[in-house]
Computed example of a mutant assay.
Amino acid sequence: MAALSEASSRILSDHPPGGPRHVAIIMDGNGRWATQRGRPRLFGHHAGARRVREIVEACPDFGVEYLTIFAFSTENWKRTQVEVAGLMSLFRRYISREARSLSEFGVRVRFIGDRVRLDDKLIRLMDDLEAITADKTRVNLTIALNYGGRDEVARATQRLAQDVAAGRLNPDDVDEETLPKYLDTYVLPDPDLVIRTSGEARISNFLLWQSAYAEYEFIDTLWPDFSKTEFGALCASYGGRERRYGGVRT
């Protein structure tokens, strides 16, 4: 039997056996997919958006209760104005078109990230989608939009510091269990499995705090080609891993 520390045992008990409960995906490769076909990058982003539905609807088949997808990072503003404008238009269109089907399928949608730089129409659509799916329980879909892990931790730290300054929080009580309560993901379990498509082997500032004990899969498939079959295979592979959380099994 494993010889685990008390903290490691607690973390382990929070994760169900078998496949991953929470999968996070860095959806990379849309631009390259389009370029390979002689099309503009936005063509690839539209194809990638269509792929999201298939993966969301596959989640119950593999026991995945939570799916978090990286849609737009705080660094993506560095892209060309044309591409950024096209992506923002795509997000508005996607939310408008998919709201009903997501709700009917039983998907609860949440958004994480800093909304300050987003336009008012997009923010209203995000708020509306969160509201109309608030009672759904089949799949919990979290969309990271204008999100960066460092930015999230910085914003969380600011809120924590404000509570300390106001006397609502004792500095001596701050520990590793305190900060997560101030993160955008405070109502979500930590991801068990993080997948990045397109062959890149980096985490790109995604869920830095939350993924401390996540398993990672870096695959060559470009996001628009990522299929339910491949998703299922990765979930099954996760189920065969030995996860010790810093402990030692004997």
Rank of each mutant, 00 (worst) to 15 (best):
V164C: 10
A144G: 12
E152C: 15
P191F: 02
L188R: 05
R196A: 12
N205T: 11
Y186P: 02
T137Q: 14
L169E: 05
S211P: 06
N170E: 06
W223V: 04
A144S: 09
L207H: 00
G199Y: 10
L179D: 03
A144R: 00
R138H: 12
F218V: 04
K181V: 06
F206H: 00
W209K: 00
R168D: 06
A134E: 13
I195Y: 05
A165L: 05
G167A: 11
R159Q: 12
P171S: 01
I203P: 13
E152H: 05
P180C: 08
T185I: 09
V164S: 08
L169G: 11
G148H: 03
Y147M: 00
I219R: 07
D151T: 15
D173K: 11
V187Q: 10
L141T: 00
T178V: 13
T185F: 06
R138I: 13
G149I: 01
I195G: 11
P224H: 03
S198C: 14
E176A: 13
G148D: 07
I195V: 09
T157W: 03
Y186N: 12
N140K: 15
N170T: 05
S198Y: 11
R202H: 10
A212I: 07
I143A: 10
L188G: 12
E152W: 03
R159M: 11
Y216M: 11
T197G: 13
T197D: 11
D135V: 02
D220W: 03
D163C: 12
R150P: 15
L179P: 05
A154C: 06
A212L: 05
T142R: 14
Q210W: 08
R155F: 05
G199Q: 07
A156R: 08
D135S: 13
A161G: 04
T178Y: 08
D190E: 08
R196I: 09
A166I: 04
Y216L: 14
L141W: 01
A144T: 06
N146I: 02
N205I: 09
R150Y: 14
E200R: 14
K136L: 00
D135F: 03
P171K: 01
K136M: 00
R138F: 03
L145H: 03
R150C: 09
V153Q: 15
N170W: 04
E176Q: 14
A166L: 04
L222G: 06
K136I: 00
D175V: 08
T157Y: 02
S211E: 02
V187I: 11
N146C: 04
I195P: 01
L145A: 10
D190L: 10
N170M: 04
D173Y: 05
G149T: 03
S204H: 01
A165P: 01
T142M: 12
T137C: 14
L208K: 03
P171D: 01
Y186C: 12
L145R: 02
Q210H: 07
R150V: 15
A156C: 08
E177Y: 02
F218N: 03
R150K: 15
V194H: 07
I219S: 06
N140Q: 15
